[in-house]
Amino acid sequence: MTNSLATLLAGSIDYAGIFPPAKLSVDQAVRSYVDYRQQADAWLLGRMVCGVDRLPELAACSSLLRGTPIRLTLVCPTVGDFKDVADFQRAQAAHFCVAALELKLPAWMVESVDSLDQFLDHVSKVTDALAMRNADVFLEIAAGDWGNALTNVLSSIQARGSTRVGLKIRLGGLSENALPTPLQVGIFIDACRSAGVRWKATAGLHHPLSRPKESGQTEFGFLNLFSAAVLACVHQLAPSQIAAILAETSADAFQFDERSMSWGDHGATLSEIADGRRESIRSFGSCSFEEPRDGLRQLNLFGASDPLEVHQTESPS
C-alpha cells in the first residue's frame, strides 16, 4: 500500500449495507460495520448510511457497539424528518453521531432559484434550531438534471457560503437511459469544483476501475472517480479531460507511490491529494465494504503492510 493511494481513498466507503442489493437487517449491518472498523483495512471505512425510518432499529443496536460511536449518514425524505434525527442524536449520543443528512431535491424545485433559496434557508434554520449545525447536508439532484438545475443549485449553495451543504450524485440503480455519461459526470465535477462545493457519490461503484456496459454506458470505477476529482482540483481540468479519467479502463494508467499519484501527464503530491479530497469528493455509498476493498486487492494495490502515513479528511469511525 502506498501513501498516495491511502490518502486518496481514506474514509472513502460509506457503508450502506441495509440498502439494495445487500438489504441486510439493521442489526446485521451494525454488526458488520463494527467488525470492519476492527480490521486492518478500516482506514477505507467512512460513515454508516441508514434511512431515518430505521432509527428505532438502530437505537436497539446500541448494545452491540464497542468504544467509539458510529458516525452516521441518514437519508431523510423531508426536512421534517430532521426533528426525529435530533431526538435520536440526543438519546443515542454515546453510541451514534449523526455526521451527515441526505435529501433528494424534487425536480420542480431545482428549476427555481427562489424556491432553492427558500429551501436552503429553511434547512439552515431547522438544523440550527435542532442543534445540528455541524452535520453535513448532501442534496441529490434527480437523474438528467444536468443543465440549469445544476447551475441553480450550486449558485444557491455558493451564495450562502456554507461549507456544510454539498451535492450527491447517483451513478447506478437507474434505468440505462438515465445513467450519466463520463462527460456529464465531468461537467458535474467541474461545476462543483468551480463553485467550491463538496459532493459525494452513490450506487453503481462496485469496482475500482470503470468498465463498459453492454448498453454502451459506463459502469464507473471509484478509483477513477476519486482520481478524477482530485486531479480536477489540482490542475483545473476541463470536463472533457475529467471524462477521460473517468472512462479509463487500464489499471496501469494510474500510478501511486509514497509521495505522489498520477494519471497520464497529470499528477498530485500527498498534500495536493489531501487538499483535493477536502475540497471535492467526500465519499461514496456502497452496500458492500468487502467488494470494493477486494477489488483493490485484485489490482495488487494493497501491499503487505498498512500505510505509514495517511492524510485523512476525517476519522473513518
Rank of each mutant, 00 (worst) to 15 (best):
A6H: 02
A6D: 01
A10Y: 02
S12F: 01
I13Q: 02
I13Y: 01
D14F: 01
A16T: 09
P20M: 07
V26N: 03
V26P: 03
Q28D: 06
S32N: 15
D35I: 00
R37P: 05
Q39H: 05
L44Q: 03
L45W: 01
R47H: 04
V49W: 02
V49Q: 05
G51W: 03
L55P: 06
L55C: 07
P56K: 04
E57G: 00
L58W: 04
L58C: 04
L64S: 05
L65S: 10
G67T: 05
T68V: 13
R71K: 14
R71D: 12
T73N: 13
L74N: 09
V75N: 09
P77A: 04
G80W: 03
D81T: 10
F82A: 08
D87E: 15
C97Y: 04
A100H: 02
K104H: 08
L105I: 07
A107E: 08
A107Y: 00
W108R: 05
V110T: 15
E111I: 01
S112E: 11
Q118E: 14
L120Q: 06
S124E: 09
T127P: 00
T127I: 08
A129Q: 11
R133M: 04
A135P: 05
V137Y: 04
L139W: 10
E140V: 06
I141L: 15
I141A: 11
A143Q: 04
A143D: 08
W146E: 02
N148I: 10
A149K: 12
N152C: 09
N152H: 15
S156E: 09
S156G: 07
I157F: 09
A159L: 07
S162W: 08
V165H: 14
V165Y: 15
G166T: 08
L167D: 02
L174M: 11
N177M: 08
I187C: 11
F188H: 01
D190T: 15
D190V: 08
A195V: 11
R198N: 13
W199G: 01
T202G: 04
G204L: 05
H206D: 07
H206Y: 07
S210W: 08
K213A: 14
S215G: 03
Q217A: 14
F220M: 02
L225M: 12
C233P: 00
C233Q: 13
V234P: 02
Q236I: 02
P239I: 02
L246C: 03
S250W: 00
D252A: 14
D252T: 11
Q255S: 12
S260A: 15
M261F: 09
M261H: 09
D265I: 10
H266F: 14
S271E: 15
S271D: 15
E272D: 12
D275A: 15
R278K: 15
C287W: 04
C287I: 12
E290N: 10
L296K: 06
R297Y: 04
Q298D: 13
L299W: 11
L301I: 04
F302T: 01
P307K: 13
E309S: 14
T313Y: 02
